[in-house]
Computed example of a mutant assay.
Amino acid sequence: MFSPQGPSLRELVVQALSSVERGYDLLAPKFDHTPFRTPDAILDAAAGALRPLGPFGRGLDVCCGTGAGMRILEPLCQGRITGVDFSTGMLAQARRAHPDAEWSAADVRALPFAADFDLAVSFGALGHFLPAERPRLFAGVYRALRPGGLFAFPIGAPPPIKSREYWALLGFDLAMKVRNAVWRPPFVMYYGSCPLSAVRTDLTAAGFTVTTVPLPALGRRADGSPRCRLVLARKP
């Protein structure tokens, strides 16, 4: 499915009926051949927005998966770069792709770092956390950053309610809620659970100063607003 090197429909079904950790362990060898990997266009746009704010010292990729975010951290950071994820399968793929980076197997809701990093990034991970879990995630990133450190991640604008994308994402979220109501263990992945306003509120409560910058390279909506913004959460 997706490409000759990607997972089959059966493999995706097995993954979807597993826990989040086990599902990504299973998918890891073929993950980079699916649309779930963060597209290079998003990585490049984020790097372009962060470049004028650097250079940075040490860098951290939160929920690093197979290490796509290292494409940003390597040129932006002058110190060591580290990826953290709870899927050992995904980390194994990341180590092969980026042997010079450091890797940590950990639940990012309890990050094992304290004032170690100057830049933290995350791509495509917020949907794996229920709204009630975000404060723990953001508090851990806050602890992991040095004073003045920056936490950056892209967040898309909600699609227009009349668009096919809106109804496709809504349908996916409803299907996941039904799946999690009738099947254990749960697989948390929701596209509509992290609007910018709620994310900003949670980041501010964690102690961050929050701004955003548009990513114009990713296009604009019909009203002229950007389709995607980069959230910049600064630790004072």
Rank of each mutant, 00 (worst) to 15 (best):
L9C: 08
V14Q: 06
Q15T: 12
V20G: 00
R22Y: 08
K30G: 04
P35C: 14
F36C: 00
D40E: 12
L43C: 15
A47R: 08
A47Q: 13
A49P: 11
P55V: 05
G57R: 07
R58H: 14
L60W: 02
C63W: 00
C63G: 09
C64N: 15
G65Q: 07
T66K: 09
A68H: 07
A68E: 06
L73E: 04
C77G: 03
T82N: 10
G83S: 15
S87E: 04
L91M: 05
L91A: 02
P99A: 11
W103T: 10
D116G: 06
L119W: 03
A120F: 04
V121D: 00
V121R: 01
A125P: 10
L126A: 01
L126I: 07
P131E: 05
E133C: 06
E133R: 03
Y142G: 02
R143P: 10
P147S: 01
A152E: 04
A152M: 02
P154S: 05
G156A: 13
P160S: 12
L174P: 03
K177L: 14
N180K: 06
V182W: 13
W183R: 14
V188Q: 11
M189H: 11
G192Q: 11
A206E: 08
F208M: 05
T211D: 12
P216H: 10
R220V: 10
R221M: 10
S225P: 06
S225H: 13
L232E: 13
A233S: 06
